[in-house]
Simulated scan of single mutants.
Amino acid sequence: MATTLGHHQYGKAEIRLVRITRDGDTHHLKDLAVSVVLSGDMAEAHYSGSNANVLPTDTLKNTVYAFAQEHGVPSAEGFGILLARHFVTSRAPVHHARVRIEEYAWDRIATPGRGAHSFVRSGREVRTARVAFDGRKWEVLSGLRDLTVLNSTDSEFRGYAKDRYTTLEETDDRVLATSVTAVWRHADGDGRPEPDWDLSYERARGHLLGAFAGTYSRSLQQTLYRMGASVIDNLDGIDEIRLSLPNRHHVPVDLEPFGIENDTAEGAVYVAVDRPYGLIEATVLRAGAEPRIPVDPTR
């Protein structure tokens, strides 16, 4: 049976990198996992085994480390742009480069009299960035995962469809908790200057949190849409955001067997159920924008 080669690519995944910048006694830390994927004129590596157009994945790793030292890490997005541009413009067989970055946050530990160089791994979310470049057009996706949030009230769930298998009782007051994964696409440049990536990230994160806290929720779907719309409405440079919100259920514990009343005016005790969980996902777009974030934005 005749065969032909479909889409093909290769790269180096999960390049762990810690860049320490020294400003006298004050040090700054960037902790990243960088993945690089290249595609282009490389079919012969599959057909005949010729590696003439294949840059070793070990070289990709070394390039990431070298660029981190020579250029620093201004931001996850900025570093991804530097790398993608280099791989596409420095080698003719490479037509397209994708760089995916996860950034892990660290908080500074105050050490009076000893310099600002001590850190503790932060419990914050993981920041993500994905950069694609084909020699002409850029696509930059920023995002985050594991942003865990909870509203202890101002959430209800009622008026839903029911059938013979429905046992869930309606409620007008529940705990709403989720772990947010979000990916947002920046508008095409059109001659505009490159944004301040760190500031853009913090603003998007702030609008996600503000909308979650500020929405009286009748469903997690409603909350999701308000979160995405808040980012689009307040940040001109973002045209599309995809959100994935697992519903981390908190169920009141039955304490009646012990003669204890749960859920009183003074408080209540809940069990946090990690699985199974409802999974609410959707994309929010600026009016007139075309959706371009894949359903699985990790790809």
Rank of each mutant, 00 (worst) to 15 (best):
I232Y: 03
G191Q: 02
V284N: 03
F79T: 04
V284H: 08
G113F: 01
L29C: 09
G143V: 03
E14N: 15
L220Q: 15
I241S: 06
A66D: 11
S35I: 14
V36I: 15
R98Y: 00
L199C: 00
A13G: 10
R16G: 12
A268P: 00
V120C: 00
L83R: 14
W197A: 05
L224T: 09
T283W: 02
D23E: 11
S142A: 15
V64S: 05
V253A: 14
T215V: 12
G259H: 11
N151S: 11
F258G: 07
V140N: 03
V18M: 12
N53R: 09
V64N: 04
L60V: 09
Y47E: 09
D239G: 11
R91W: 13
T167I: 13
G80C: 01
G189L: 04
A13C: 05
D154P: 00
R248M: 07
G24I: 04
T4E: 12
E266T: 09
H7P: 12
E266W: 04
H28T: 14
D41F: 14
S217Y: 10
H207C: 01
S118H: 10
R100M: 05
V64P: 01
R203I: 03
T89Y: 03
P257M: 01
T153H: 14
I293P: 01
S122A: 03
P112M: 03
D58E: 15
F79E: 02
D107L: 03
W138H: 10
E14A: 15
A211Y: 06
D190Y: 06
S200F: 00
D107Q: 04
P252A: 05
A177M: 05
A211T: 07
P246C: 13
V180Y: 05
F133G: 05
A68C: 07
P252K: 07
Y277F: 08
G24H: 06
L141A: 05
V269Y: 08
A13R: 14
N247T: 10
T298F: 09
R91H: 15
N51R: 13
H207R: 11
A161Y: 08
A211P: 06
Q9E: 13
E102Y: 00
E290Y: 02
M227T: 08
V37P: 02
S219V: 06
R145G: 12
T298A: 12
V295E: 13
R299L: 13
L147E: 05
V54F: 07
D196N: 13
I232W: 06
D233W: 06
E103A: 11
A177F: 00
E156T: 15
I20N: 07
P297E: 04
D198E: 04
G278L: 00
D274A: 09
N262G: 03
G11N: 02
V284R: 09
H96D: 07
G210F: 07
L38K: 05
D196A: 02
E139S: 15
W106R: 03
S244H: 15
D198F: 00
H27R: 10
V251H: 06
R130A: 08
T223W: 08
G228Y: 10
D163Y: 11
R91T: 12
N62C: 02
Y104P: 01
R292E: 09
